[in-house]
Design a protein around this nucleic acid. Structure first.
Lengths: 136, 136
DNA sequence: AAATATTTTGCATCTATGTTGCAGAATATT
DNA sequence: AATATTCTGCAACATAGATGCAAAATATTT
């Protein structure tokens, strides 16, 4: 589906900023931080607009948060979400120690773990660190 | 091992702030954010001191970062680190949706996942969300 | 296509979080 | 007890993110 289509499907107005930012996600298969987006759009938009756009995308399930160990917030697009419109982010995220990219491994499902009794699990997140195919 | 002993073993001076903060971690089996520590020490220490103490503890391997999906940094003590002094945090972290506590499941090891070929893994982190034994 | 209604953007402002340099205080060493 | 080392607190700074509101852009209606 094309970018305007994705926006319309989610009840969002089609604006220059949203189109450009969504395109950035589609071109880049890794995860993006707010700062990456500002760099790549050449400061064409206000900081606040970028924040709000990202928040909107998260709310609509177009994009999801990626867990990190530092204090950065990463956003990643799920291919499945794009196509089908239902939000599921139970896949593994991979962070390359070399190129520092965060990559969604859409095909790798987060495994279940045995929890202590009396613990119930809703959802799980998994981040794997290592060296990606490009850098190897 | 007692708190001053842990500090000494890591080549750190024994100071009021470090003892109190390390005690906080030992008493509380969940993960703590910077803000939690400031609350629990009754603002007895400067903000900067708390930041630096946490950074020092991370550097020395006394405490480790817990991955989160929001922008908060959580710190958690590993029982094993305390006892043996070697850093390993390949256990699962559990975040309770109800009481919002983060709990180190020291006995639950992060499972291995099959990565795409050409990907090498060094270490993995896993966060499970759900309801803990207390809240159930 | 023009007019109106709705959304979105940008600016100004504010808050929280985290860092760094440096002098004084506390701890460790001799 | 005196010296050397380490740590703390203050001030200042940097960055990330949120909010209210008027102006601008988009969507809808006629």
């Amino acid at each position: 589906m094309d970018v305007p289509g994705i926006l319309k499907k989610n009840g969002l107005s089609i604006t220059e900023g949203r189109v450009k930012i969504l395109n950035l996600f589609i071109k880049n298969d890794g995860a993006l931080a707010h700062a990456d987006i500002e760099k790549n759009t050449g400061a064409a938009f206000d900081r606040v607009t970028v924040y709000r756009t990202l928040q909107t995308f998260v709310d609509k399930g177009i994009v999801h948060h990626v867990p990190t160990t530092d204090n950065s917030i990463l956003y990643a697009l799920c291919k499945d979400d794009c196509e089908a419109g239902h939000h599921h982010d139970n896949h593994v995220h991979f962070i390359c120690d070399q190129c520092n990219k965060t990559i969604c491994l859409d095909e790798v499902i987060v495994p279940n773990v045995k929890l202590p009794k009396d613990f119930n699990s809703n959802r799980s997140e998994m981040v794997v660190h290592g060296v990606c195919g490009e850098c190897k």
